[in-house]
Amino acid sequence: MPRFTAAELEAARSRLLPDVLPGSDDPPLRVLFCGINPGLVSAATGHHFARPGNRFWPVLHGAGFTPRLLRPDEQGLLPGWGIGITNMAARATARADELSAAEIVEGGQVLRALVEQRAPRWLAVVGIGAYRTAFGAKAAAVGPQDTMLGPTRIWVLPNPSGLNAHWSRAAMAEEFARLRAAAEDGA
């Protein structure tokens, strides 16, 4: 991965990161992963979860979603496995806590519209705080939620950011694997 200067990262704040979604030749969308917002490295590279130290890709593989460990620049392979990626808020920041609650709530509305349009089997929100804010679910915990968006079930996952020291990589992989099993079972 290229190393970016502080100026290059600062310039990335104005970039939008496109969603990774299946095309017409791909299988149906089983799981749509929703990050909080793009980090500056992700905005600079154009690839989701691209910051070194982010555990998304290793955890995704460890949970059995992918047959091998993918690099962020291989995100385009995901739709072939019925997997997509989006973000709650579009604005790129160095840290998710730079977002306002209003941005997250607004992003939740945009996310609801995307889910309605794409109808994934599961929406997997990575970040309990963002989910609680966007969906007004103050008591939500990691795991499957009772709330649904039409036919789409919701699963809240721990944030794979390297800044989230509360969850080990192994524990995250176990939680992601629980979602994978549910998505494969059609539950």
Rank of each mutant, 00 (worst) to 15 (best):
F56Y: 04
R121Y: 07
E8Y: 05
R95G: 00
R68H: 10
I128Q: 13
L70C: 08
M1C: 06
F56L: 04
S161H: 02
G53A: 03
G80M: 11
L69Y: 12
A50P: 03
S168N: 08
V41S: 01
L9R: 13
E184H: 05
L78N: 08
A6F: 05
P144L: 09
H47L: 09
R112G: 07
A96V: 07
D26G: 04
R30C: 04
A6E: 08
A173I: 12
D146Q: 11
Q109N: 06
A43P: 01
V115A: 01
L17E: 02
A170E: 15
M88D: 01
A119V: 11
R91V: 10
R30W: 11
H47M: 06
I154P: 04
P28T: 03
V156N: 03
A177Q: 13
E175T: 01
G80N: 09
G80D: 06
P120V: 06
A63R: 09
S42W: 15
T66W: 14
A6T: 09
H166T: 10
G82D: 05
G150Y: 01
Q75C: 11
V125P: 04
P151R: 06
S161M: 04
A170P: 06
M148G: 03
F176T: 08
V156L: 08
A12H: 12
L9C: 02
I154M: 05
R180G: 04
D185C: 08
P52I: 04
N159V: 02
F56P: 00
E103H: 11
